[in-house]
Simulated scan of single mutants.
Amino acid sequence: ITTIGYSPFGSGSGKSIKLPPELRTLAKEKNISTHQLMLAWVLRHGDVLTIPRSGEASHMAENIAAVDVTFSPDELALFD
């Protein structure tokens, strides 16, 4: 069964989910935003779909760039 994440970052500002410091650090190390980090995590799994919102061209470019983010097994362990 495929799952679709609706508003995975919460409504409005997207600050509803409090990410652990380790994931914020990982995003900084990868030179990406925390939204890109979480979107890349969701996209790596073939049975979860996402509908990322974008109100600006720059945000759309960030969403598209999330496709190229990869994770090592140790990085994936941070999410777990």
Score class of each variant (00 low, 15 high):
40 A>M: 03
46 G>M: 08
62 E>G: 03
79 F>H: 05
41 W>M: 04
14 G>V: 00
14 G>P: 01
76 L>A: 04
32 I>H: 05
80 D>W: 08
61 A>G: 01
40 A>D: 00
58 S>V: 13
39 L>Q: 03
55 G>V: 12
51 I>R: 05
29 E>Q: 15
57 A>F: 14
74 D>C: 02
68 D>E: 14
25 T>S: 15
3 T>V: 15
41 W>R: 08
68 D>R: 11
79 F>A: 01
67 V>P: 00
75 E>C: 04
74 D>I: 08
63 N>D: 13
37 L>K: 04
23 L>D: 00
27 A>Q: 07
35 H>A: 15
5 G>R: 07
76 L>H: 07
51 I>Q: 06
57 A>W: 13
6 Y>Q: 15
80 D>P: 00
62 E>T: 05
36 Q>D: 07
66 A>K: 01
7 S>E: 05
69 V>M: 02
60 M>L: 15
19 L>C: 07
49 L>I: 15
56 E>V: 10
61 A>L: 10
46 G>S: 13
32 I>G: 04
54 S>V: 04
46 G>W: 05
68 D>H: 11
75 E>M: 05
58 S>W: 14
21 P>M: 12
55 G>S: 14
48 V>W: 02
79 F>I: 02
49 L>F: 14
62 E>C: 04
40 A>H: 02
6 Y>V: 15
54 S>D: 09
46 G>N: 12
2 T>R: 09
45 H>W: 10
10 G>E: 11
43 L>S: 07
62 E>Y: 05
71 F>L: 02
46 G>A: 11
13 S>Q: 08
48 V>L: 11
54 S>G: 14
63 N>S: 11
47 D>L: 12
22 E>Y: 09
25 T>G: 09
35 H>K: 14
27 A>L: 07
41 W>I: 03
